[in-house]
Simulated scan of single mutants.
Amino acid sequence: MVELGRFDRNLAHILVGRLESEGIAAIAFDAESLIGDGSWLLIPVRVMVDQDDLDAARAIVAA
């Protein structure tokens, strides 16, 4: 898996859903671990995709 980008927690989950609706497997890394320390609004969440899907995922994010 490679990093597509870093986004706020809510946007990261929206992007994962959008990518999966297009058949691209995606994971929001670190999203849940940030809630416990109260910094979930401050620290970006990494959205990860397979290397083979990176270009397609970037095109979806750009659109």
Rank of each mutant, 00 (worst) to 15 (best):
I27Y: 06
G36C: 00
G38M: 03
G36M: 03
S33K: 08
A57K: 03
E20D: 03
A59K: 15
H13S: 07
A12S: 09
V49L: 07
G17E: 05
L41N: 09
L34V: 14
A63Q: 15
D37S: 06
D8Q: 12
D8I: 08
L11V: 15
I27K: 10
I27E: 14
I60C: 08
L42G: 09
L42F: 12
V45I: 13
E3H: 08
A56I: 11
D50L: 07
S33Y: 04
A63V: 12
D37F: 03
A25R: 09
V45G: 05
N10C: 00
L34H: 08
R58V: 10
R6D: 05
L19V: 04
R18I: 12
L54C: 07
E3M: 10
Q51H: 10
M1C: 00
A25S: 13
D53E: 08
I35Q: 07
L42M: 13
I27L: 13
F29N: 10
I24V: 13
V16R: 03
D37I: 02
I43Y: 02
I14A: 10
D53R: 04
A57S: 10
L15W: 04
M1H: 07
D55G: 04
L54M: 10
L4W: 06
D8C: 10
W40S: 09
L15C: 08
L54H: 12
R6C: 07
I27D: 07
R18Y: 03
R18L: 14
D53S: 12
R18C: 05
E32G: 05
R6E: 14
D53F: 03
D52K: 14
I60D: 05
I35P: 00
D8N: 15
A12E: 02
G38C: 06
R6Y: 08
I14L: 14
D53T: 05
D55S: 14
D50K: 10
G5N: 12
G5D: 12
R9E: 10
M1P: 03
R58P: 07
A56C: 08
R46K: 15
G38A: 06
G23F: 00
R9Q: 13
E32C: 00
S21Y: 02
Q51E: 14
L54R: 09
E20H: 01
N10M: 11
A28F: 04
R58E: 14
D52C: 04
L34P: 00
V61L: 14
A12L: 04
R46A: 12
R18D: 04
M1I: 01
L4S: 02
A59R: 15
G17S: 11
F7N: 05
D30N: 14
Q51L: 06
V61A: 13
A62F: 09
G36P: 02
S33D: 08
E22K: 11
R46W: 00
E32R: 08
G17Q: 09
A57I: 04
S21D: 12
V47L: 09
I24R: 00
V49Y: 03
D30P: 01
I14N: 06
N10L: 13
E3L: 11
A56N: 12
S39W: 07
L54V: 07
A59S: 15
G36A: 10
D30S: 13
A25I: 02
L54K: 11
D55W: 08
A28L: 03
A12Q: 03
